[in-house]
């Protein structure tokens, strides 16, 4: 009886073994395709790794380009401002000269009025004086010139406002450089993990401005709205402070 039980158990075990083998037969192709997939993936991963390393090594060049743009626009803006400065100086000099001419003309006009009284009765001389004054357009011309000078000065002034766009873009580019810098850091550490630090030593580092030396949210807004908001914040803060002082006084 015992022997029959043992045989039954043996057959059960053999059946289990058979199931394992039949399951194994099913799983072998899957394992095979997994191995094939791994074989194909390894070179792909190496390519990705190489590509990341290459991209990372190109990042400093991109940062350099951005710095070059900032430097070039800065230089151009400074040059434009220098020229505007010279134009404004020249306009001021010409304006002063024209004002001096105007002053002299006013004196001459005074003299002519006196002359006219002295020449009363001398019709020939008065006719000559009338003829002379016909061509007197200096006063009007001077006023036109002074108006034009004022307009040129205002325009020069407005150029300075528009050129501030350079400062805003410089701050935005500094922020972009900072973002690139952090991406480079992440990629470099990824490469470091993949290559045991072999590739990282080749990656050049570009000096980027420290956080806090630029405003990533700088924007070119010339409507004056931001200044109005700033003034109102200061005003509110001042009135709150005064109220606090009053409260303290009566506490």
């Amino acid at each position: 009886m015992k022997r029959v039980e043992n045989m039954t158990q043996l057959f059960d075990k053999l059946n289990d073994l058979k199931s394992v083998f039949s399951y194994g037969q099913k799983i072998i192709p899957i394992i095979q395709s997994l191995i094939d997939f791994m074989k194909e993936t390894v070179p792909l991963l190496e390519t990705i790794n190489k590509s990341i390393a290459e991209s990372t090594s190109k990042i400093p060049r991109a940062q350099d380009q951005i710095n070059n743009i900032t430097n070039a626009t800065e230089m151009a803006t400074t040059e434009i401002l220098d020229i505007v400065d010279i134009i404004s100086d020249d306009i001021q000099k010409v304006e002063n000269t024209v004002k001096a001419i105007d002053e002299k003309e006013k004196n001459r006009a005074g003299i002519r009025i006196k002359l006219r009284t002295y020449l009363q009765g001398n019709t020939e001389a008065l006719a000559l004086l009338d003829e002379y004054e016909k061509g007197d357009f200096i006063s009007e011309t001077i006023n036109d010139l002074l108006e034009s000078f004022q307009k040129i000065k205002n325009d020069a002034y407005n150029i300075t406002l528009s050129l501030q766009v350079q400062d805003v873009t410089a701050q935005q580019l500094a922020a972009v450089n900072h973002l690139i810098d952090s991406v480079q850091g992440k990629l470099a550490s990824l490469i470091n993990d993949l290559t045991d630090g072999e590739s990282q030593k080749d990656i050049e580092k570009v000096i980027t401005p420290a956080i806090g030396t630029f405003d990533p949210n700088a924007n070119y807004e010339t409507s004056g709205q931001r200044q109005i908001e700033t003034d109102s914040i200061i005003q509110e803060s001042k009135s709150k402070q005064s109220q606090d002082d009053i409260d303290k006084l009566f506490a």
Partner: peptide, 25 residues
């Protein structure tokens, strides 16, 4: 170019007399 209320209030609290934002007139 910083123009948040915190920065403005901080600047004035530190002792500035006026606060202008860029781009300025």
């Amino acid at each position: 170019s910083l123009g948040s209320s915190e920065e403005i209030e901080k600047g004035m609290a530190y002792g500035a007399n006026s606060y202008l934002v860029k781009p300025f007139d």
